[in-house]
Design a protein around this nucleic acid. Structure first.
Lengths: 195, 195, 195, 195
DNA sequence: AATGAATGAGCGTTCATTCAT
DNA sequence: GATGAATGAACGCTCATTCAT
């Protein structure tokens, strides 16, 4: 059961089509049939062949999209040292990703919000939230210790920043300037008084 | 043609069951069959009898939930005069509603985010967003004119506040103190320098 | 259970709406719901109240339409004596009815052709055909005895004339002149050689 | 994408069963369930697997039936040269087909007459009529130019012949001799005076 | 003379998945 | 590495009809 090059390419093709369908139609209207149309495959059988089940495919979509974006994000943030500087950069890059990778971002949200177990419990949302928010919370807490940031609940602040960024797409507002504006906003909200 | 008492009661029964199912299972897993189970009706036929189609039911769910919550919200905000005071109260009440009306709030989000036309375009989300955000944006703009609020983009700020509130549920954080913390956060982010 | 004026009026209202729906949508797409829309009634319940079942309504549609048209037809034919003259007039009037009563004619055809018992056997078609064709066949036979018509199978001729008239609507050809042309055609086909 | 042997056989099996059901029960009472019974398939799902939707199946029924019969018809008519001779042969063969292929003929009529778009407009009838009648009209017109046929409106005559043939089945009359009788009839109706 | 409320059965269609090559 | 063929279950929706006033 070795993974050949073709196998990997096929999986990527299917995942990419799934990302597009999810971004365009939303999770609820996404089906194997729609993905097959988008990827111009012969039948849904091919998806079942390469992925154990729908859950497996959705996980792959999530891993692929999150992986791609986190890699870009990390590349853009490396080398930054100051906490406030990092926060600003993080927000601006996240908003910038909306312009360069809107489909992946939509797909991540759709899958995380809507993919559930049979009993209705969300499968990926908690992990994803922990992943994103947990990291930021630690940064904020460290910044408070360093005296860069004011007193506030780091968990609430981290979650608020995360939600604010997710909310950018929903707003339909023009993206130019949005990142800077948002960075300014959270700078005011976090900055220690006598910086 | 005219709405009888029995008819209204049945509709309410179905809508309430729908709200619960949507809140518990999410929009994608909600079906007439699940609603029938929850409401202990005889068959899905009864839903089709009282609502033209799925779209009609979802609209009713939205109108019912938004109406209930907005009524409560307005009751709690009336009599407040200062812009900053109003903003604080708005945020705290919205968070408080999460404790008292979690199902309605979840249902609103689920339906607004996921109910779409056949081509995938959202049907209710834009209206709902305009409604909520537009009102707040006008308040912020007025506050800036009055010198209560600092310089910032009111559209971005309104959208950020709205997103932040919607993100509370997702966080899974304890609600006590969350409202106050969030109010403090946006107070710092909006307040004019000469406080 | 006396038949009041209102009762009769209501039945007529429903029958007329049914005729229109059948003519417009065809028998297969006709339902109580569509008739209710057309007649602007409150619910299908009203149809079930005035007619025992679908079969009863369809019978009423047929009786009403056939009755109306036969009355007109007979009025136009009375006083004619010559067999050939009568045949010509019959054909021309039948074609003329297409212009003045297209809906009734379509409804008759639709119901006669498509309304069936549960086992698929037609319910009205044979009677209607017998009624129309039988009468004409007797006229033709009499004309042959009188030496006005040539030798031909009267049953086949009667059925052919009937079919030809029914086929006018299907042709989509302009009606002016069609009746005369058809009358000429069957005059040539029936006329004795040395008239 | 490509049509396999099994696929073609299955489609044929379903189409043939559909033809029988339509011929026996009529279009309005035909459903996937009835076809499944006739073809002894496992479930209606199998029909949906092989045909995009009901419309697709009906089109296939029409194409299959019309194709089969036209092939037979053309084979029987080839080699004939005289216009009058051709007309006679055409009519007689069409009537003969009623004996050998009654189900296909009924199915064609049922589908053409009753299959409609959502708004009630017929989907196949106009094309089918044009196809059949148009061809005959051209033959008649040519015959007139050649002096074989008398003066008459070729469009009306073509439509009348077509209707007369369609009306044979409806008559319930014995078929032996019917074809010849009908051919004689239209021979008299079309033949030029100087025969 | 009419209505409100409800219903069982059936419709065509779509879902992700599986068997057998 | 891929496919053809098929499937059980569920979907939202419409049908004519009935019960109880």
């Amino acid at each position: 059961m070795q993974v050949t090059i073709t196998e990997a390419a096929r999986r990527k093709q299917i995942i990419d089509a799934a990302v597009e369908v999810i971004a365009d139609l939303g999770y609820a209207k996404t089906s194997f049939a729609r993905i097959v149309e988008r990827a111009e495959l012969s039948s849904t059988r091919l998806i079942s062949y390469h992925f154990a089940d729908k859950n497996d495919l959705m996980m792959a979509v999530l891993i692929s999209s999150v992986g791609t974006l986190d890699e870009l994000l990390n590349a853009r943030l490396e080398g930054l040292t100051g906490r406030a500087e990092m926060l600003r950069a993080y927000i601006e890059v996240r908003v910038e990703l909306l312009r360069t990778h809107p489909k992946q971002l939509r797909a991540i949200t759709e899958v995380a919000d809507n993919h559930r177990a049979a009993d209705g419990s969300p499968m990926f949302a908690p992990l994803l939230t922990d992943f994103r928010v947990g990291r930021m919370e630690r940064q904020l807490r460290q910044g408070q210790r360093e005296g860069v940031f004011a007193e506030f609940d780091p968990a609430v602040m981290a979650n608020t920043i995360s939600s604010a960024i997710e909310g950018v797409a929903r707003s339909g507002l023009p993206l130019d300037g949005y990142g800077r504006e948002l960075a300014d906003l959270f700078d005011r909200a976090t900055r220690a008084a006598a910086q």
